Simulated assay, not measured.
Amino acid sequence: MKKRLETKPTLYPLPAVVVGTYDAEGHPDAMTAAWAGICCSEPPCLTIGIRESRLTYENLLRRKALTVHVPSVDLVKETDYFGLVSGRNEDKLAKTGMTCTPGSEVDAPVIDRFPLVLECRLVSTTKLGSHMLVVAEIVAVAAEESVLTPQGELDVRALDPLCYGPAGYYGLGALAGRAFSVGKELLRP
C-alpha cells in the first residue's frame, strides 16, 4: 500500500541546469535551476521555472535570450554555488574561474566548462504563483566531443549529467532499456 505524502513538487530526478544571461551592462551571469524540461519538439522548446525576483529573469526579459547548460557530475560544486548567491552581489563566473564566450545564435553567454549547451530565444513567460514559467525555443545546441558517440550523437553516459532530487544532487545510473524498443515484447500476443 502506498503512503500518502505531502503535496509538493515531487517529480524526480530533475535535471540540474545552469542558465546563462547577460545583465544590463553586458556582464555574464549564471543561475542554477532544477525545474526545467523539454516541452515541444517542433519547434524545439524547453521550459524553466524561475522566480520573478531573480536577476536572471530580469536579464532574459531584457535580452530575450538565454543559454541552458547541462553540467556533468564533476561540476557539482560550481553548479550548486551558482544557485547560492545572486549576480547582483557577486561575479559568480570570476569566483569559480569559469570563462564564457558569446552565444553563436543568441545574445547570451556560453559557459565554456559545461559539456552541453542549448542556446535559446525567449518565447513567453507565464506567472504560475511562486515562479514564472519561461518557455524558450532552442535555436542551437553544442556539445564537447568527449560527450559524443563516434556517430556524433550525444552519449548520456559520457555526459554524466547532474540531477537534482531529495537531499541533493545525483548522477544517473546505467541504461535500463532502449526507448521505443524494450517494451516491444509486450506487444506480442
Rank of each mutant, 00 (worst) to 15 (best):
K184T: 14
D91R: 13
P109I: 13
P13S: 06
T32K: 03
D74R: 07
C45L: 06
G83C: 12
D23T: 08
A174M: 09
G177Y: 02
K77A: 13
V182I: 06
A142K: 11
T149G: 09
A94N: 09
S181D: 09
Y170E: 02
Y12K: 01
L187C: 13
P102K: 13
S53M: 07
T126I: 11
G37H: 07
V85M: 09
L55P: 08
D80Q: 10
V135Y: 07
T32A: 09
V135G: 11
L55F: 00
V68T: 04
I111M: 06
R188T: 15
L55W: 03
R88D: 08
D107C: 04
D74N: 12
L75N: 09
R4F: 12
E153S: 11
I38R: 15
P9R: 00
P189W: 12
L84F: 13
P13F: 04
V117I: 00
N59I: 05
L55H: 13
V182K: 07
Y81P: 10
V135M: 13
G20D: 06
L159P: 07
V123M: 12
S146T: 12
L14H: 03
L154S: 02
R157G: 12
A34Y: 05
E42F: 15
L186Y: 14
A65S: 09
E185D: 12
L148H: 02
G183N: 14
L128M: 12
A94S: 15
S181P: 06
K2L: 14
V76Q: 10
K8G: 08
V73I: 02
T149M: 00
E185G: 12
G129T: 04
I50R: 01
P44Q: 11
V85C: 10
